[in-house]
């Protein structure tokens, strides 16, 4: 069976390639760099050589140059198998040195077997390109090396930048600390409580709910309302602007109570039946206004159960602007 010399400084790559080729029945000899490969080849003269490029002592390019100079070896097919020099310019240079095949790592075992079969079956001396002269070879070699050097320098710079970023990130405090919130909210609460106590305009943290006022069901009062015997008061502040009232209601928001009271209620007696409506999650406005009316001396003050929403849902009359 044909003998094949494989050259690689990586023992794992060497072992893998050896396994693939031995499985095909080839006799395999290994070397770890170009110099060792030349020495072995001159002793046993293989039928094919597969070599890595990036190796210590003597790299694949120099090995190829020396190989093609040797009269006994020059006709032996030469295959480059590399993971480092993958640029098309590298391939051109490798082939210009006289190599028959240029393969980039990794390749499927089947592909390797096929390439080896083809290389062994043809006349290597005819197939290979004529090697360049000494000056061209050295010039090409220096270009390949400088290109690789630039690539490596760029990779090094990138790695350095990434390392610096990671290092900076490591110095930064963690994304968020619960202590941040404890300090911010704790200090805020402390300042708020102490300032509110000393502030002459301070207010209680939790307001006292307004006194209970008797409530009336819309059904129970609608007849009296139609007869005009009930005065409806809308206590919702927002309704003062958008004028969405029960028909005939007077809008007296708490903030305008004194003015609106003197305008709208001065003509009514203290025994006038009054129903106040309007509240929200944030404000029991109906209770507040009803309480104020009771303080003003009105004796028959009630709040409307369910407010405007229930009234509207039951289909009772609304102001023209309030009707949908």
């Amino acid at each position: 069976m044909p003998s094949i010399l494989i050259v690689d400084d990586n023992s794992q790559n060497l072992y893998l390639l050896e396994l693939i080729l031995k499985a095909e029945g080839y006799e395999v000899v290994t070397a770890e760099n170009g110099e060792e490969a030349l020495r072995v080849a001159r002793q046993m003269v293989p039928d094919l050589i597969i070599t890595d490029i990036f190796m210590p002592v003597m790299d694949g390019f120099v090995l190829c140059r020396e190989w093609k100079k040797d009269e006994r070896l020059e006709s032996i097919p030469f295959i480059f198998y590399t993971a480092t020099y993958t640029d098309p310019k590298d391939e051109n240079y490798a082939l210009s040195l006289g190599a028959e095949v240029f393969l980039t790592k990794p390749q499927e075992p089947e592909k390797i077997r096929e390439v080896v079969r083809e290389a062994l079956s043809r006349n290597a001396g005819e197939a290979a390109a004529r090697p360049m002269d000494e000056i061209e070879t050295l010039l090409g070699y220096s270009q390949v090396l400088s290109r690789k050097l630039e690539q490596k320098a760029s990779q090094l710079e990138k790695a350095r930048t990434e390392l610096a970023e990671i290092s900076t990130a490591g110095n930064r405090p963690c994304l968020l600390s619960a202590l941040d919130f404890v300090i911010i909210f704790g200090l805020s609460i402390l300042l708020a409580i102490t300032f509110n106590i000393s502030n002459p305009s301070g207010i209680p943290f939790f307001p006292d709910p307004p006194d209970k006022v008797p409530a009336v069901d819309p059904f129970a009062m609608v007849e009296e309302y139609r007869q005009g015997r009930i005065l409806l008061i809308d206590a919702m502040p927002a309704n003062f602007y958008n004028k969405r009232h029960i028909k005939g209601a007077v809008n007296i928001p708490m903030s305008l109570f004194d003015i609106m009271y003197s305008i709208n209620l001065s003509q009514y007696g203290r025994d006038q039946k009054i129903v106040v409506y309007g509240n929200s999650i944030s404000g029991p406005y109906d209770l507040q206004v009803a309480g104020k009316l009771m303080l003003a001396g009105y004796t028959d003050v009630k709040v409307l159960e369910g407010g405007l929403t229930t009234w509207e849902a039951m289909g009772f009359p609304l102001d023209a602007k309030g009707s949908k």
């Binding site: 708020a192 409580i193 207010i203 943290f205 939790f206 307001p207 927002a238 944030s282």
Partner: peptide, 14 residues
């Protein structure tokens, strides 16, 4: 009209 009546004052202070 989005914060419950009981918490309006506390919110205004804090």
């Amino acid at each position: 009209r989005l914060i419950p009546f009981m918490f309006v004052n506390a919110t205004a202070i804090l």
